[in-house]
Design a protein around this nucleic acid. Structure first.
Lengths: 329, 329
DNA sequence: GATGTAAATGTAATCGATTACATTATCTTT
DNA sequence: AAAGATAATGTAATCGATTACATTTACATC
């Protein structure tokens, strides 16, 4: 692969002139410009980003941290981030942390090493302290999950309100025994959604039973199945379930089917996220729709602004309750 | 962020010595080594990959091209690639081409520009000619989808045999009217799976009807729904369907349910890929299981070998028919 | 034709690392 | 204590671009 020197030599000009042509600098005569362009074409030259980035100390790469690529919730967000990034001449590095601190470190180093210009973190299990430290010197945005006490700008939805609405919908459909399948409350969204759940129950003077609140360590389908299995073993079974993630809800639905029960008649189910699967289940799943694509766009724009040195402030986007078969008796 | 010069100054040594400490070169006395390490710690120094990569002309970044991050089929493969890459000290750049030639170009430039050391392409819609040209000068591996006539090493399964087995299973379950929901036959895997389908039908002297072969442009759930809708409008309806992707099959199942029909009694369904969701549907989906994680590992190892200059040859992995409720009358 | 000004082009420093080669320090050995 | 061998460290070129500053060229004006 040719370098800028060879192009300059072939065109009979200096490297500076070649660079000017490359960067669309106007102070190049049309004649020399043509010579240079011919040389570039003949040599099949492509400028090395390594050299360019070293000099400009930018990489035009954005890091996107996700806990697991297997959760469809993130895919739509990523589409939004990617579209926005590309149209601003950035590319994204998708980093599956697996909620593994060691991997996390690898990716943090990438930004310290100037191989990335900024980070969008969607990992709820990220080391918040480290992230905050890093944010002092680098551009970082949080998406969906964030640190209440930190100073990193974020984009998210009102989780408590969304959960409240989901549970209220169940109550208004006539349910009085409503279970919660939550994820670990070390995550902010889990605490917020539980608050929304409790708020709705209290408002309608319904009892809050610890037995009906299951904590799941992971968000896989199987985890939802397991949680539902526990609920079905109780003496006093709930008639409705609110799961804090569609993947959990879908697993729960599966377990209901497997026990020859029917949703929503035996047990109604509400999920959270509106992943594309949620409309393919049998019955289809009632869920809270997050504006995932938009969330990705907003996060990317915030990050790019931050990199440019602008001030950015956090954003809370709207959500929507999507009512489908799993709660429609 | 401190650079190597400042570390050298602080430690009272030359940059060469710092570099030696960094690269675990043995010819450094324990005493100086300590001095340097202290300086590094005090200055919070992290070596710039940009400088290092420019000098070494390597980036230790692998490009992974996928047509769409929304298809769960790819997620398990990516997990395999990522694990293998990380344990070999590489990181991966996940690139969602959206089967968009312009995006594709962006990512091809990344490797030309030395920002990536190699490519694993899983995009069936990739420009094969360009990919082959690029392969002449760069390290490239294809995964799952490949070019029969090209010279790029690949890892895949025997698509024809897998499809043959899937259809044979339907025939042996008593079905005589078997439809195919295929994707565009510009893709090799589509042609191969169709061949397997036809081979099975011929072997059992069953007729091949063009009406029963639907081509879907995309692999989304909705596309499967649409395809099934067409099949259900036929005068002579099939009693079983083989879809070349689980996403299509799940959409088809959904459409069957929506028409108050039951799988497998009214119509049996077989998918392809064994994505995790295929075990969550109602009924659960019979499908061909590809060793996705392993495929990713093999592809990554092949690529790393190729980068090292070793000779690598293509690999065909085993598949498995997973029988579930959607074909079990 | 001399002069001034603007446009075009070139020279060389720079980004932050690695490393071949040169030099200096240390240790043996007699 | 001198010589030679070896270990430790330093000097400076290098990777491939960008760009401030310097220089050259072209052209207008009197």
């Amino acid at each position: 692969m040719a370098n800028i020197q060879q192009v300059a030599q072939k065109a009979g000009v200096s490297v500076a002139t070649v660079s000017r042509v490359l960067n669309k600098n106007t102070t190049v005569s049309p004649k020399t410009k043509l010579k240079v362009e011919n040389a570039i074409r003949e040599l099949n030259y492509e400028p090395s980003m390594l050299g360019r980035n070293l000099r400009n100390s930018e990489s035009r790469l954005l890091l996107v941290l996700i806990p697991s690529i297997s959760n469809p919730f993130y895919t739509e967000i990523i589409n939004g981030i990617e579209d926005t990034a590309v149209s601003n001449n950035y590319n994204i590095l998708l980093c599956d942390t697996d909620s593994n601190p060691q991997r996390e470190n690898i990716y943090f180093n990438l930004i310290k090493n100037k191989l990335a210009d900024g980070i969008i973190s969607m990992d709820p299990a990220v080391n918040m302290q480290k992230l905050n430290e890093l944010a002092a010197t680098h551009s970082i945005i949080q998406c969906s999950e964030y640190d209440e006490n930190g100073c990193i700008p974020y984009v998210t939805i009102d989780n408590e309100l969304a959960a409240y609405r989901a549970v209220k919908h169940l109550i208004q459909s006539g349910h009085k025994k409503i279970a919660l399948i939550n994820s670990d409350e070390k995550f902010l969204y889990a605490r917020q959604r539980r608050q929304g759940y409790e708020k709705a129950l209290k408002e309608f003077h319904l009892p809050i039973f610890n037995e009906w609140m299951i904590t799941s360590q992971q968000l896989g389908f199987e985890d939802g199945q397991q949680a539902m299995r526990k609920l079905l073993q109780l003496n006093e079974k709930p008639t409705a379930v609110f799961a804090v993630s569609d993947t959990l809800a879908i697993g729960a639905l599966r377990e209901i089917n497997a026990n020859q029960l029917k949703a929503p008649n035996d047990i109604a189910v509400v999920g959270f996220d509106n992943i594309s699967f949620s409309n393919m289940t049998n019955p289809t799943l009632t869920t809270i729709s997050q504006p995932m694509y938009k969330m990705g766009c907003v996060a990317a724009n915030m990050l790019i602004d931050k990199i440019k040195g602008k001030d950015v402030s956090s954003v809370i986007l709207d959500h929507e309750l999507v009512i489908r078969e799993s709660t429609l008796g």
